[in-house]
Write a protein that binds this DNA or RNA. Structure first.
Ligand SMILES: [Mn+2]
Ligand SMILES: [Mn+2]
Ligand SMILES: [Zn+2]
Ligand SMILES: [Zn+2]
Lengths: 154, 154
DNA sequence: GGTTAGATGCAACACAGTTGCATCTAGCCG
DNA sequence: CGGCTAGATGCAACTGTGTTGCATCTAACC
């Protein structure tokens, strides 16, 4: 399968996902969802904005696009260690999953990744309280940054 | 023990804590740490600012005061569900604890509380990664808000 | 093609948090 | 005590994220 074929079949999959959620299939939505799927890890608004060089879309449009994709469950939203949001394309195969896993963020390079292999643990809450959502963020050094630091120390 | 006696012995404990951490014992630090200890749950910067009616201190001073108290381990910092920070007086009896527990926040009234009875669970991270810190936030309805909603539905 | 609900772009705003600098003061020492 | 000084405070200006209102444009439907 050629590169360009792969690329185009992937973008048609993106179009299907968008239409399948009952959304209008606009260039902004295709570009954003496509980029998030290709990248695979949670990206900040600013990273997504930078990434699409020429065909820039408006800041506000990007915020609204991400909100819409999230409402449809095509994307999940994760809190960054400094309080801003990151967005990650959701693999819709796993039912009921959008975000029911921990995330790891490197304090040095800032990269974040989903720790999707394990569901979030149960923690007891006060009697009578009703749990709606949970988020677990683990901060530290990613393998590559940890290796760099270890090498410098030697 | 009289009310005023309790109040004054409590504020002398606050002074001890501050001095014991090698910090200069200023009115701002006493007021902020005192208020956080009395309240006992994680408070937003804005809540702390509002609380001290007349003797208001500058926004920036409050930020810096909280940062200093956190550095000394007298206070721990928790991320709110909307990304801003909350601060909670740390009980220094429990060694190594400042924040190694989950927090619960009510999505309706906004109140947050420490779920300090249980330590944070261990979650596997990528090979070679180095964990520095973790935060677990559980969102939902607090007992009183849940009860209110249940009553209205009936 | 024409119609229109809904998507986009732009300007203005709200709010958390930070930085630089001038002024003040807690703690120390004579 | 009464100065001295490192460090604390106050003020102004700034950054970055995210939101709202409104005019304009367009994807999807016929
Ligand atoms: Mn994730
Ligand atoms: Mn806590
Ligand atoms: Zn890294
Ligand atoms: Zn509540």
């Amino acid at each position: 399968m050629s590169e360009s074929h792969a690329r185009s079949s992937q973008s048609s999959r993106v179009r299907e996902l968008i239409k399948g959620s009952g959304l209008r299939c606009t260039p902004a939505r295709q570009a954003v969802l496509g980029f998030l799927s290709r990248t695979g890890r949670p990206l900040a608004h600013s990273e997504i904005a930078k990434a699409r060089g020429p065909a820039k879309l408006d800041r506000v449009t990007l915020y609204r696009t991400l909100a819409v994709l999230e409402d449809s469950g095509l994307v999940h939203r994760v809190q960054d260690s400094d309080g801003s949001w990151r967005f990650c394309a959701h693999v819709p195969v796993k039912k009921g999953c959008p975000g029911n896993h921990a995330h790891f963020q490197c304090t040095r390079c800032g990269e974040m990744q989903c720790l999707a292999s394990q569901a979030l643990p149960w923690i007891p809450v006060p009697d009578g309280a009703l749990v709606i959502g949970k988020q677990f963020l683990i901060c530290g050094l990613c393998p590559s940054c940890a290796a760099t630091r270890a090498a410098r120390k030697k």
